[in-house]
Simulated assay, not measured.
Amino acid sequence: MTDENTPTAAPRSAAGSLFDLRTVIAVLFGVYGVILTLLGLFGGSPEQLAKSGGVDINLWTGIGMLVVAAIFVTWQRLRPTITG
């Protein structure tokens, strides 16, 4: 039994979810995260490791950015914007 006064959620448009700010931020973090992770895995030199105290900063920063991108995508999926 439904009440006629209860609002119903409008269907989400594809453009609305594509240009959601969380999606844009997730894509940016994801792209930069992949680049930094690949640089950390394949582009490191002993001189760079010596500068950073033996820590591969590119690798760890890239992994962190990929985690942040995954959090933004999860947030966008669990709490979609209501358009209408």
Rank of each mutant, 00 (worst) to 15 (best):
N5F: 13
N58D: 15
V67Q: 04
Y32A: 07
L49I: 12
L66S: 08
V24C: 09
G40Q: 14
A26H: 04
A9V: 09
D3Q: 13
K51F: 07
L21N: 09
L39E: 11
L36D: 03
V68I: 14
R22W: 07
S17K: 03
I57A: 11
V34G: 07
M1L: 15
V67M: 11
S17F: 00
P7F: 11
T61D: 08
W60P: 09
R22T: 00
W60D: 03
I57N: 08
A26R: 04
T2A: 10
G16M: 05
Y32Q: 09
D3M: 06
V31N: 12
A26D: 10
L49M: 10
S13T: 08
I82D: 11
D20I: 04
Q76G: 01
T8V: 10
V55I: 15
L21K: 08
A69D: 05
Q76M: 00
L78T: 15
T6H: 12
S17G: 07
F29V: 07
W60M: 11
T6S: 12
G53V: 10
S17I: 00
S17L: 06
L41T: 14
I63F: 05
G16W: 01
T61H: 13
A10R: 06
V27E: 03
L36F: 09
F29S: 08
Y32F: 14
I35Q: 06
K51V: 06
P11W: 07
L66C: 09
G40D: 04
T37S: 08
W60N: 14
I82M: 06
V27S: 06
D20K: 00
P11E: 04
T23D: 05
T81S: 11
D20A: 01
S45R: 14
T23H: 02
I57E: 14
A10V: 05
A69F: 02
W75S: 07
S17D: 02
E47P: 08
G62E: 00
P46M: 03
E47S: 14
L66P: 11
I25C: 04
Q48T: 15
